[in-house]
Design a protein around this nucleic acid. Structure first.
Lengths: 117, 117
DNA sequence: GTATTACATCGACAGTCGTGAGTGTTATTG
DNA sequence: CAATAACACTCACGACTGTCGATGTAATAC
């Protein structure tokens, strides 16, 4: 489990001395982290993750009424999840008469995906 | 923005008729979705995302006291974030005397990364 | 021994989350 | 017109979140 540790032997710092100066910094800057964390947070619910999975493979071809029976939640809760995904910029929707068709916005997951790999 | 929609013209269902049967199902199963959502949720905070970014590139070489000044949060809050990452199975730590060294568990992000790409 | 460092944990706080029942809005059917 | 479908929105609920200060614990320095 542990990873190779090549540590310079450390010593407790003197009384009142400032703590060890940071020698490394994140490559990912704050704004970038904010954007990616927002996407990750939206994917941080199993139902929303499965919703994105369905929508990615059947973009614009599934109405909300077909999504409801896939999950053991009420229609209003599903609508809430779709709203969260839209607020995160992951999906958008189109109305056709009574029905609403959602689809994953192209490249919405691109930045996070690239960072993860 | 909208995606190509090739929809068979739908009709409102008759009174009392069951709603449209779902024709598609998520490829990602429930347990898989639970695991990936847990990882995504842990990455759903900008500070934790930057923490993982640092740890991925300097595994086992940075003690917690070097991480604290990188972020504008208290030491206890940083410890809390590291605990969350560990609970999600993303990182683990090793104690060396007074210091604690965290590292990203190999392949911890693999499943989510593969699904995203 | 005592003092101090590094880090984790506890307690508390306001804020957000996922959830469902109920309601509202709009479009279609009859 | 009235009735009903599909969907979004409002309200309320308990549960969880990120945050900090304070405290606890273990190791090092003196």
């Amino acid at each position: 489990m542990p990873v190779d540790l090549e540590l310079s032997p450390k010593q407790k710092r003197a009384n009142g001395a400032p703590c060890c100066e940071p020698v490394v910094y994140p490559d990912v800057q704050r704004e970038e982290a904010l954007r990616m964390a927002e996407v990750a947070k939206a994917l941080g619910d199993p139902i929303r993750l499965q919703l994105v999975d369905v929508l990615r493979k059947h973009a614009g071809k599934v109405c909300v009424c077909e999504l409801v029976p896939l999950f053991d939640i009420s229609q209003s809760t599903l609508s809430h999840h779709l709203g969260k995904l839209r607020a995160a910029g992951i999906v958008d929707s189109e109305r056709k008469g009574l029905w609403a068709y959602y689809y994953v916005i192209p490249d919405a997951l691109k930045e996070l995906s690239a960072w993860l790999s």
